[in-house]
Write a protein that binds this DNA or RNA. Structure first.
Lengths: 208, 208, 208, 208
DNA sequence: AATGAATGAGGATTCATTCAT
DNA sequence: AATGAATGAATCCTCATTCAT
């Protein structure tokens, strides 16, 4: 009996988690398309092919749904980058940076909705601005920061406040990715990544 | 008679323009504080110490009020930078860039509401995103782009798509300025500007 | 299971239709009392003993609510007349005409709100005037027109454009009914109907 | 001095009356075009090429402006008909009726705005419905009624309540004129008038 | 007389959220 | 768990009217 119960509950939990994710996915689509404020809970429910009640069963409010979505997006981005860096096993820091940046652009390339969510709608909620900006960048920047600190210790990067450096990298990538959604100038993720890496490492002043 | 009339009309026009600007200023304060969506026309009217009707007498809608505000902010920033560069009469391009970047940070330092408006709320209006991003950056970036092109012709900057370079500079500055509003790490405009200039010109990789 | 579900859904649909009609009825009362423009959605909601939201749940706008009401009124009038004519099974056309006209006056006698709605408020919506006039009279006049054509074929009515004849009959009845709401001169529906029939069939010139 | 003053005052009064009429004419155009409710005082002022204040200088409110307009329209129609009848000096009542009806249609033919004003917008003001309907028809119907009474005394018209007869004639003409604005079936004023006269005098039943 | 800026009550509509079923 | 009907506060905007100049 207990085994049976456990199995059932497990199946149940799985079902539950699946439904949650389904709603999150639907919300992502709608938020990215219409923006946070223009999106209504009715839109979300419709996209989920369910009803108000169901959405509210899994999420207590529109804000919480959005918050959770943002967290998930941040996490997804972070893992995507870490995986790429791990897989590439780069020799030095500049190689690692290049891998990370390329992975970031590719992540956004593959999922345009993420860009809008992370870099546009994260600012949509007014007062909570700080909170979201923090949440989003938190993990992303923390990782970058680690990279920067390591590089500085090895003498691969000049001395500069690592927070600022990490933030600059994140901002640069984010804004460039956002820009691509508006103006299509045919620059691939790889080309953009290369540009950013060059800019970051060697700057724009020509060497002799 | 005519002279008198003309004088009166001129005074009237001035009065009118003054009222318009008053409303614009009030709107700027409120939008920057609460964000575009959380701001109501009642808020704007209250801040103006007038009524709904008066605001609507000068601006046909909340959107148009916001649009005009954005345009004005963009223009103000642009002029502020141009003036600084003109006054400094820098010798070479890197000096010019430094002046420009410092002027930008100082502009934002002096007027924190501008940052929020330009880099946060400009994205607030959903579909019109492209329009506003364009409008705001338009002049700002156009000027930067000119600077970049000139520098490239003189061999002072590496070859890279000038649009991207200009956009990157703008984005970097904007995001760093925005960040300062949230997290106060005591970095002055001058220090930040120096950091950005160094990063942009020489990159983060140490020279031998 | 299925049977139960079907039963429940049917009950639900019925309930829904009932609520709709309840709102429609409330709207009819209010529109007839205050006129289209002077009626607010708050009035309608209050009369329904529900809220804004509920009215808007069933009807997308004030206009659509009004439109639907007008259509329903037109249909009700039409059916009322057709039923009367069918029941009376009149021998000739003039008898049929008399029955129809009497039925019309009786319909309006029984439901004074209808008169106001059909002949006063149908004109209230400005540009949409043609549309409504058309919709309302459409069925009413179409039936009358058929009666007229038949009568003309049998030589019971003089040759004249049937549209005009039908329209004239409808207008005469409508305006007389509307007049009764304002000036009560104690004329019953039957008397008025008789007057109209006489006027239409034999005119006002005495026979020798 | 007194003579001079008088002359000045007279000129002044004339000027004043002229301005009033100008505003009334402008209001007529706008009301007829957009309907009473959709017309704003700003519309009226604009059409007058003056300002709010000027309109309010001559008329205390939108309602009073409308009321006066309606009265003027009613009067104009009435005079137009009386003039026509006087000029034609008809022999008998049926001739007089024909002249009157034709004159009415011609009046409306020449001034389509009048139709809308008298037969559509007169109903626009809800509660005041009775008042306006009365005002409009008052003179018009009073004259018709007189015609009817005279005819009945001479044995030219059957016995029937003269108010109802007069009202019926007025209604028939009004509604047919209104109809012409919506559906253009190419019927001239003369043809319509002839139809109405025939219908009223001899009815629709063919004589043996 | 004329102007037009200012006022603010009022109205249609939206939408997050609740809750009976 | 799920549904979707119900709620009503909140918001943008309109427009008749007033009044200082």
């Amino acid at each position: 009996m207990t085994a049976e119960k456990t199995r059932r509950r497990a199946a149940n939990d799985e079902e539950k988690a699946w439904r949650r994710n389904e709603i999150l996915a639907a919300a992502k689509t709608v938020f990215a398309t219409k923006g946070f404020h223009a999106t209504t809970m009715a839109d979300v429910a419709r996209e989920t092919r369910s009803s108000y009640g169901t959405v509210y069963w899994y999420f207590p409010s529109k804000d919480s749904l959005f918050d959770e979505l943002m967290d998930a997006e941040g996490e997804a981005l972070r893992h995507s980058i870490l995986d790429a860096v791990t897989a590439a096993a780069p020799d030095d820091v500049s190689a690692a940076l290049e891998v990370a940046i390329r992975a970031t652009f590719e992540f956004f390339e593959a999922d345009r909705a993420s860009v809008k969510l992370l870099f546009r709608d994260s600012l949509a909620t007014g007062d909570r601005f700080e909170r979201h900006l923090g949440v989003i960048y938190e993990g992303f920047i923390a990782d970058l920061r680690q990279l920067v600190v390591t590089a500085q210790e090895q003498g691969d990067l000049v001395d500069a406040p690592p927070e600022i450096v990490a933030f600059s990298v994140a901002a640069l990538i984010g804004q460039l990715a956002l820009r691509r959604l508006a103006t299509d100038d045919g620059l691939s993720a790889a080309v953009l990544a290369q540009f950013v890496v060059n800019l970051l490492l060697d700057g724009l002043r020509p060497r002799i």
